[in-house]
Amino acid sequence: MRVIVSGGGTGGHITPLYAVIQELREENPRVEILWIGSKSGPERDFAQRHNIPFEHIAAGKFRRYTPNGLDFGGDPSSIGQNLIDMFKVPIGIIQAYFRIADFMPDVIFSKGGYVSLPVVIAGKLLGIPTIVHESDVIPGLANRIASRFATVVLTGFTEAKKYFPIKSNVRFSGNPVRSEILNANREKAFAVFKFQPAKPVILVTGGSLGASRINQVVMGAIESILEIAQVIHLTGERDWVKIAPHAIRLERFGYRAYPNLTDNMAGALAIADLAITRAGANTLSEFAVLGKPMIIIPLGSGAGGHQEANAKIFTKHGAAIIINEEKFDGETLLRQIKELINSKEKLADLSKNAKNLAHPNAAAAITREITHLASHRSNAQLKTISHRA
């Protein structure tokens, strides 16, 4: 079986895509995989580190969008860049066409993002069955366009179906989670981070790119937080230079800061008693599958409302606490941390409810869809050959 996968730009597309690749390789060690992504995105380095063949194409990114489409009334610089990037899309389609024609896969699996759209369109032109996966409650613009060319659309939330223009091919799968997240060793993780097992651990993350507002508030209250908990703080690359000196000073008090945790994220998740996080769908899915209580600070409606919609699903089911960004300050955060850390019952309820929202077999469900389409295509090709004979 030959499979092309596509997606990138942020960890929110890369890590779930890798979870599916892991499952494909587990189910079929002979599977051949080609990853098509952008030249400058983090997916290229990620694929190379994990020995996954990689090809790049031109990709244009649509900026300043709403749930209804592009916002051409927004920032003039974004409008100009959108116009420039529009010309990259047809170039990307042509490049993707030749990449796909050369590899000739049985199936294309697209995780979404702007780099995937040319791949999905080119796959349609070549008659290759295509699966598009959407992680968020509110689909991104690229996936809503791509869904028109897809054979099957899979969603991480059942609520996402209503946002797609064609609903007959939309099915629920859940969001795939990497195998190492599910199988991390807590004892080993405590040793790696040099933490005391008896003291609570808080994991702070703003997603793969970091979140300056979360970083600012946490650092303003960090000494008070460290009186009651140990902290693993993922700052993102942008704020790392500013926070690194504080990390050295506070290390002896149980503070560990990193720009990101490429290899030890599973360990950080394993020992966390509480997470402070944005509301990216795949981050929430990884926390949920382990039953991690969460304080969520979603990006506001100016980012398309994706994170707010994701967060509302978790709070609706009693699986997380939301603090809206406009009300997010050190005093509010510290008060909420103390309330949760001092209430084992509340933490247990959040943990149980988060697990109830988890779908640990999502990668397996997606792999079954891929295998089904691949076998259907193979059977169709055999029938064509037999008729010609």
Rank of each mutant, 00 (worst) to 15 (best):
G7V: 07
I14K: 07
P16F: 08
P16L: 10
Y18L: 09
Y18G: 00
V20N: 04
I21T: 09
Q22M: 11
Q22V: 12
E23L: 07
S40M: 03
P42C: 01
Q48V: 11
R49F: 00
F54P: 11
E55K: 13
A58M: 13
K61V: 14
K61R: 14
P76C: 09
Q81E: 15
M86K: 06
P90N: 03
I94C: 11
A101V: 08
I108W: 09
F109W: 13
K111E: 02
K111I: 04
G112R: 07
Y114H: 11
Y114N: 01
S116G: 08
A122N: 06
I128F: 07
I138G: 02
I145F: 00
V152C: 04
V153Q: 01
L154R: 00
L154N: 00
L154Y: 00
T155R: 06
F157G: 02
T158F: 01
K161Q: 00
K162V: 11
I166G: 00
S173K: 05
S173P: 08
S179D: 10
E180A: 03
I181S: 07
I181T: 08
A198Y: 10
L203R: 03
V217Q: 05
M219P: 09
G220I: 06
E227Q: 11
Q230L: 04
Q230Y: 04
H233T: 11
H233E: 10
T235E: 07
D239R: 04
D239N: 12
W240G: 04
K242S: 11
H246A: 13
A247D: 03
Y255K: 07
Y255L: 02
R256V: 03
A268L: 10
A270D: 09
I271Q: 03
R278H: 04
N282W: 00
E286T: 04
P298K: 03
L299F: 14
A303K: 06
A309S: 13
K312A: 12
I313Q: 06
F314E: 02
T315R: 09
K316M: 05
A319Y: 07
K327N: 14
D329T: 04
G330I: 10
K352N: 07
N353S: 10
N361H: 12
A364K: 15
T367R: 12
H372C: 08
R377S: 13
S378F: 12
N379L: 14
N379S: 15
I385G: 06
